[in-house]
């Protein structure tokens, strides 16, 4: 997985010498180093490497730490959804054969056989071939059904006596199992978590935006860090922005830091691409002031 240094080949050795020498000359501020580089075999690449080493991106501290949790939470939520779907499919497949003995039409009246055991619970729940079976192939001791004879009824009643409660019990267990698994794996509506970043007006601010689609609308919970409290006479307003326009979803002052701010949206979040927080002035029109302090990209 790592890119171990490999300097096979003369061309690579030459390039290594060339690049190492160029870096040395650059670090020593050797006069004429640019001219020397320009006369080398690959001047553009040498310059590009130096540019890269001088770039802030190269030495920046990397992505914001919150992104890792955001990615993994989304992936885990997706995986959990898949597991629930797969489990439901499996359970549905298991349940279908169990109901067959009850719904399948009764075969032709079977002659009573001394060798045929009375119906057992296991026999009821086990899948039964639709036709055929040892009992059906056993010849009747006497020709013609004698349905009025009580001896004909007893085994059939006995079989149904076992089958109905067992099937009902199986269905109840299955239903309870599905509900239990459903509640266990999906106890809460899934939250989509996005990372919010401060703008130049609040460069220290950062946080997460959790969006949960509930029956009463979309809950948008902002957990800001480093966002200063709004000064008296001002407040923060949160907005959703997208092709359909800009929608206000609530206001707050952040004078108690560390408390999640719950906002509500009456519009479908899927139609909006940007979450933003603006600094507003009390008494001013309730439209976005343009003083954006935090933003997050939604629905990437």
């Amino acid at each position: 997985m790592s890119t171990a240094p490999q300097t096979d080949g003369g061309a690579d050795e030459q390039f290594v010498d060339l690049l190492a020498g160029h870096l040395d000359r650059h670090a020593r501020r050797t006069p004429g180093r640019k001219k020397a580089a320009a006369q080398s075999a690959d001047p553009a690449l040498l310059a590009a490497v130096v540019t890269e080493l001088r770039a802030e991106t190269t030495w920046a501290s990397g992505p914001p730490p919150a992104l890792r949790d955001s990615i993994l939470s989304r992936v885990r939520a997706h995986a959990a959804e898949q597991r629930v779907v797969e489990q439901r499919v499996v359970e549905q497949r298991v349940a279908e054969p169990a109901s067959e003995p009850l719904t399948a039409p009764e075969p032709a009246p079977e002659p009573l056989s001394a060798s045929e055991p009375l119906s057992a619970p296991g026999a009821v729940s086990a899948p039964v071939p639709p036709t055929g079976g040892p009992a059906t192939t056993v010849p009747a001791p006497e020709p013609g059904p004698r349905w009025w004879h009580p001896a004909q009824w007893r085994p059939r009643m006995g079989r149904l006596t076992w089958a109905l409660p067992a099937a009902a019990l199986g269905a109840a267990v299955f239903t309870a199992g599905v509900l239990a698994v459903d509640r266990m794996l999906d106890p809460q509506p899934r939250a989509d978590v996005y990372v919010a970043a401060g703008t130049d007006l609040a460069p220290e601010a950062r946080g997460t935006v959790s969006v949960v689609d509930t029956r009463s609308g979309a809950s948008v919970v902002l957990e800001p860090v480093g966002l200063p409290a709004a000064a008296p006479g001002s407040y923060y307003a949160a907005w959703l922005k997208g092709p359909r326009g800009t929608v206000p979803i609530g206001s707050f002052h952040e004078r108690r830091s560390g408390v999640p701010i719950e906002l509500w949206s009456g519009v479908d979040i899927a139609d909006y691409t940007t979450f933003s927080v603006t600094l507003q002035t009390e008494g001013a029109p309730p439209t976005p002031s343009g003083l954006v302090v935090m933003t997050a990209v939604l629905n990437p």
Binding site: T3, P5, Q6, T7, D12, F15, V16, D17, L18, L19, A20, L23, D24, A27, D42, L45, V49
Partner: peptide, 15 residues
């Protein structure tokens, strides 16, 4: 010097 050499070796295949 050693760091430059090592970095250049690691970038040998950058082309």
């Amino acid at each position: 010097h050693r760091a430059h050499r090592r970095l250049a070796e690691l970038l040998a295949h950058v082309r």
